[in-house]
Design a protein around this nucleic acid. Structure first.
Length: 495
RNA sequence: GGCCCGUUCGUCUAGCGGUUUAGGACAUCGCCCUCUCAAGGCGGAGAUCGCCGGUUCGAAUCCGGCACGGGCUACCA
């Protein structure tokens, strides 16, 4: 039975040797979306066979990142499943059994070559400028009984797969690259079991994928060249070969492999910077996959229903933070004022220790107004902090932006504008944005000045800066008492 | 050294032999709106489809070579 006829089972199998990187996150997203779009099963497996670099803490970081991304897995850590365990370190006996079966069936053999001999052989091949520089097959034709005797005698050994002499072309059916042809002659009898009794990656991963019934392997294209080796293992195991989908790497702005010097590379850094999970998934999903040539903002639901492997691009993608910001802004702007207040505004203010000061005008209606004012001006959650800061300063401590003072307060007419507006505002009972604007509206004409000449001095007086939401909203948020106090204070700087 | 992969505006991409004067999005520039900053609306500039040959009446699309970039070739994953 061909793999495409089996119910879809895909897996994301990170090694807990570090945090979840954006490249891994995208691989996880594609696996998840493919499973959801095909009604298949999404499995999470932890490939922790490298004991020196794998840690429990990294495993937790990865699970947390997966949850934050909203990539729920059907089988794996913490949810279980019929094909477990889902940690490779708990499956060692499976690998051992599979390898021994391969030896027994003549598809693998014991090798007693020392690392030194192998290195010497390789150097010799290089010196001879041989086209083939792999394993020379020294132990391939050892008598099985004799080999077994040496093993029993305690001699160190590795287990190597026996690539059939007459295998010919190995064709990897890849959903994004098409059929990729390799010749088995270029493959050597690679090691599947180390002398320390642990399996190698190319072996363990295939044993797991075969036993877990994985039908499609979606992973980074750094594995493409290793795929024919893995196909050899599937064949030796007598397991169906899955369909592969090798996706390209994500690069930094300079076209080089993403690394620390490019800034944020891990999922949690993006989360901590204030990106929305939906926006981040949206951006990453479209970095290398396009449902059409038009869509930029695509919902999680659409991703989960429309994702397909045949629209995945072959070439590497450069990560563009500007576009991520744009998409994040789109998600923010699509929120209701209430959602924005509860999910972004208030948490951000709290995490920056901007707690309500003075009298309690910071009620629900006040936050709704602040949310409405700030939402269109926000592309990243933390943007709200600097914009709202003037509302959390004592009147006497408010700092004025030097340029703004020079441009708007230290100018002829500024004092008149402040006087007139203070007078109009003092008389005002209804302290709503609309009422404030109505009260201020006639002033420019009365004073014979342009609107900017009147409103900007007020804005600078109240916020300390030349940029803020509309004057009505700004004053309404600051509160009448504070507005008047700040205007009075600013008059000392005005002409 | 050998094998494999990739190459469309600055960036992400659409394009699967004629409907293409190569479409969209981000970024950028300009205009409108406007009390500022955003948001929003409208518009501009921006890609001889890596290069060279070939197939074809016709190629970004098919084939070959080359160049550049990347991967694998480990008792790493």
């Amino acid at each position: 039975m061909s793999s495409t006829e089996r119910p879809v089972r895909v897996r994301f199998a990170p090694s807990p040797t570090g945090k979840l990187h954006v490249g891994g996150a995208r691989t996880a997203i594609y696996n998840w979306a493919f499973a959801r779009a095909t009604g298949g099963t999404f499995i999470l497996r932890i490939d922790d066979t490298d004991p020196t670099r794998s840690t429990e803490e990294n495993t937790q970081v990865i699970l947390r990142a997966m949850r934050w991304l909203g990539l729920d897995w059907d089988e794996g850590p913490e949810v279980g499943g019929d094909f477990g365990p889902y940690f490779q370190t708990e499956r060692l006996s499976n690998y051992r059994a599979a390898a021994e079966r391969m030896v027994a069936e003549g598809n693998a053999y014991y090798c007693f070559c020392s690392p030194e001999k192998l290195a010497a052989d390789r150097e010799a091949a290089q010196a001879r400028k041989d086209t083939f520089q792999g394993y020379q097959g020294t132990c391939r034709h050892l008598d099985p009984a004799e080999a077994q005797a040496r093993v029993d005698a305690g001699e160190p050994y590795t287990i190597r797969i026996k690539v059939p002499d007459d295998r010919g072309d190995v064709i990897v059916h890849d959903a994004v690259h098409g059929d990729v042809v390799f010749n088995a002659k270029e493959l050597d009898d690679f090691i599947i079991f180390r002398s320390d009794g642990t399996p190698t990656y190319n072996f363990a991963t295939v044993v797991d994928d075969a036993e877990m019934g994985i039908t499609h392997i979606i992973r980074g294209d750094d594995h493409l060249s290793n795929t024919p080796r893995q196909v050899m293992v599937y064949e030796a195991l007598g397991a169906p070969v899955p369909t592969f989908a090798h996706i390209s790497m994500i690069l930094g702005a300079d076209g080089k492999k993403l690394s620390k010097r490019h800034g944020a590379t891990s999922v949690e850094e993006y989360r901590d910077a204030g990106y929305l999970s939906d926006a981040f998934v949206n951006y990453l999903a479209l970095l290398g996959w396009a449902p059409d040539g038009e869509s930029t903002v695509i919902s999680r639901e659409r991703l989960a229903s429309e994702f397909s492997l045949d629209h995945v691009s072959k070439n590497p993608a450069i990560m563009d933070p500007k576009k991520l910001d744009f998409i994040n802004g789109e998600y923010l702007h699509a929120m209701s004022d209430r959602e924005f207040a509860d999910e972004v505004l208030i948490p951000e203010l709290h995490s920056h220790d901007l707690e309500p000061v003075g009298e309690c005008l910071h009620d629900e209606a006040w936050y709704d107004l602040l949310a409405a004012a700030l939402k269109p001006r926000t592309t990243l959650g933390p943007d709200v902090v600097a914009q709202a800061a003037f509302l959390y300063e004592d009147d006497a401590d408010l700092e004025y932006d030097e340029k703004a003072v020079k441009k708007w307060l230290a100018k002829a007419g500024a004092a008149d504008a402040l006087d007139a507006s203070a007078k109009a505002l003092t008389a005002l009972d209804d302290w709503s944005p609309a009422a404030i604007e109505a009260a201020l509206d006639p002033l420019p004409e009365q004073l014979g000045m342009g609107k900017g000449k009147v409103f900007q001095p007020i804005r600078v007086a109240v916020t300390g800066s030349a940029a803020s939401p509309g004057i009505g909203e700004t004053l309404a948020l600051a509160g009448k008492e504070h507005v008047l106090a700040r205007i009075a204070r600013a008059k000392e700087l005005a002409q």
